[in-house]
């Protein structure tokens, strides 16, 4: 009797243990499955872009795309029409993208870096506490708002300034888009640079002050050189943003695929062309539609490349002063 009783208790306990074990296993599986979504997303992006891009390269030779200087994707008016394939050289789009990103960085780098330096080195905590969120607001504003502002306010101003000095500027221009994008990028540079500057040990500043250096000398000759890798990282991240930015350029940069470095002309970018190719009527197998995926793949490689390098640099930097 006694032994029987013991056995049943034992059994129950073992049973309970097994069910908790099962439960734990189930929960863990759900957790792992959730984590896989992020991986699946990446795989999905890479596969879908590659797959469609691959089909595109079946129609248009890879090197014609990568090194072609002419971009004019024609639409086939009837599906049985031949010889309407158009030109799919991505170089004009790339130069347009780079031109606008360059203008944006010319605006954002000094503004972002000087802001970061002032906030990190000069500003009183009180000032810092309200200026920093204000600057970060710039990054929180939807880009469609910047696009609208660039097209409606900035472009006309640039245009009238141009005509003021007898200079014809088109209503859509790399300048308007680049300037406004530059403003958008300021917080990307200032926030990360601010962190990076703050990570420079106080001991280095003390050493410099102790030598009789002024604060500006300390910043330019000691703090910034020490923070250079981190700052480079923040700039690369900003460039990656600029290249991938869509709405500002769609609304303010134009559609003209010209191989031009004139910032006062309308230029087009990779993102603009993706939008143009994929909005409106499309038939799915045309080179025109597939081209969008090829451009997107190129875009992904560019931005991810920049991003990986940037993260690596920042990471190494943080380890150095950790």
């Amino acid at each position: 009797m006694n032994s029987h009783f013991d056995a049943s208790v034992d059994l129950n306990l073992r049973h309970a243990k097994r069910s908790t074990q099962l439960k734990e296993l189930a929960i863990k599986s759900v957790l792992i499955a959730s984590s896989l979504v992020a991986i699946l997303t990446t795989i999905g992006i890479v596969l879908s872009l590659s797959f469609e891009a691959f089909r595109f390269f079946g129609k248009i030779p890879f090197f014609d795309f990568l090194f072609g200087l002419d971009w004019s994707p024609q639409t086939a008016i009837r599906s049985d029409q031949v010889g309407s394939s158009g030109a799919f050289g991505v170089v004009p789009l790339l130069t347009g993208t780079m031109l606008i990103s360059f203008i944006a960085m010319v605006v954002a780098t000094p503004l972002g870096l000087y802001s970061a330096v002032y906030l990190a080195e000069y500003a009183k905590p009180k000032t810092r506490n309200w200026v920093k969120p204000m600057l970060e607001l710039l990054a929180g504003i939807p880009t469609v708002v910047y696009g609208f502002f660039a097209a409606l306010v900035v472009a006309p101003i640039i245009r009238s300034m141009g005509s003021g000095v007898g200079f014809e500027i088109s209503s859509e221009s790399a300048m308007a888009a680049g300037l406004v994008m530059g403003i958008m990028l300021i917080p990307f540079i200032s926030s990360l640079s601010d962190d990076v500057i703050n990570a420079v040990p106080q001991a280095l500043r003390d050493a410099s002050y102790g030598m009789g250096a002024t604060q500006a000398e300390t910043i330019t000759k000691v703090v910034l050189p020490a923070a250079t890798p981190g700052i480079m990282g923040s700039l690369l991240l900003a460039i990656s943003r600029a290249i991938g930015e869509t709405m500002i350029v769609v609304m303010a940069a134009g559609l003209a695929a010209k191989l031009s470095l004139n910032p006062f002309e309308a230029v087009t970018t990779m993102t603009v062309q993706i939008v143009t190719l994929l909005t409106g009527d499309q038939e799915f197998d045309s080179a025109k539609t597939l081209a969008a995926f090829a451009i997107a793949l190129y875009l992904l490689v560019l931005t991810l490349g920049l991003n990986i390098i940037a993260l690596k640099i920042v990471d190494n930097y943080k380890k150095k002063y950790a």
């Binding site: 991986i39 992006i45 993102t271 875009l299 993260l311």
Partner: peptide
């Protein structure tokens, strides 16, 4: 791998997610 993947996913241009939606 998951970590690196997540960090990089955060930097993928938003338009690319649109293309993912379109094709998948």
């Amino acid at each position: 791998l998951i970590e690196v993947n997540i960090n990089n996913l955060a930097a993928v241009p938003s338009i690319v997610f649109g293309l993912l939606g379109l094709s998948i």
